Simulated scan of single mutants.
Amino acid sequence: MSVVSSQFKRSLFRPCIDLHDGEVKQIVGGTLSDTDTAALKTNFVASHSSAYYAELYKKHNLEGGHVIKLGEGNERAAKEALQTWPGHLQVGGGITHQNCKEWIGAGASKVIVTSFLFSGGEFSLERLESISAIVGKDKLVVDVSCRRRGNKWLVAMNKWQKITSMEVCKESLDLLAEYCSEFLIHAADVEGLCQGIDEELVEKLGEWVTIPTTYAGGAKSVEDLKTVDRLSHGKVDLTFGSSLDIFGGTLVKFEELVQYNEDAMKQ
C-alpha cells in the first residue's frame, strides 16, 4: 500500500535523499550558490551511499520519498537509489521535457520539476503542458519551493537561488494541479536550520492544495508532524532532514517517524 496522504486523512513522514557532488548530504538550503561556493553550509555528509538510504526506506515501506540532485555530478548516485527500489522514489533536479522519460525508465515513480517551468524566471504554461503530456500527469510532481518576500511566498528556482515571479497561492496551485499529481514545497528560508517549520505556510497550504503535497524545511521534532497534521487538516506531509539521526541529527529518531506512520495508517 502506498504510504502517501492522497486521501487527506493524516499527515505522514515522507523520506528524502539529497545529493550534492555525488554524496548524500544535508545542506542549509539558503546557502546553495553557483557563484559563491565558499558560502555553502553543509550540516552532514553521509558515509553511506544513496542506495543504503533507498534500501532503508524500502525496508520500512516509506513510499513517496524524493531524491533531489543539487547540481551536477549526481546522476550515478540518483540512479543507484532509484534502482534499489524501482517505482517507489521520485527524482528531481535538472528535470526537463528531454530527460523526464529517461528518469522514469531509470526507476523513478515520478519526476519532480521546477526550473524547467521558468524561462528567465517567468512561468511558462507551455513548458508545463509539454512535460505533462510527455511523462503523464500521474508521474509529474511540481516543486513550488519558495522564499518569503513580505507577506507572500515566491517560487524559487535553480537550487533556490533565483526568485521567480510566481506567487505560491491558491490560484497558482490550482493551475499547476491541472497538470501534475503532487506538489513538493521546500521552505528554502528555513531549510536545514532545524529551527522549526514555517507554520503559516503550512496552514495556507492546507487551505489551498487539492492534491498530495509534501512540505520540507525546519522540522525538528516528531511533534512537528502533529502540528502539520493539525494546521493542514492532513493535506500536507512532512520531510525531515538535518534534525534526523540517520543524517547525523540529534533531535529526531528515524524509528519514531516510522512508528508514527505505522500508527497513522491504522487510524
Rank of each mutant, 00 (worst) to 15 (best):
C146T: 06
K162S: 09
C180T: 06
Q161C: 07
V4G: 05
D34Y: 15
G192D: 08
E178D: 12
C194K: 12
S221P: 03
N261S: 08
A219C: 05
S5N: 14
K69C: 13
S2Q: 14
I17L: 02
L82N: 05
A54V: 02
S130Y: 15
Q161K: 12
G107W: 00
D245P: 08
G105M: 10
A106F: 01
E223W: 11
S145W: 03
C100R: 08
A219G: 07
V135H: 01
E171H: 13
V141I: 14
Q98M: 14
H97I: 06
E80W: 09
S242G: 12
A46C: 08
S132K: 05
K170M: 03
R14E: 08
S6R: 13
S130V: 13
K9I: 08
V228E: 03
G249K: 09
A106L: 01
L125R: 12
M157N: 06
R127Q: 15
L257W: 01
S124C: 15
A156Q: 01
H60D: 12
V45F: 04
R230G: 05
S172Y: 04
L19Y: 01
F44R: 01
T35G: 01
E199K: 15
S221Y: 06
S6H: 09
Q98N: 13
T114Y: 02
R147D: 03
A133M: 12
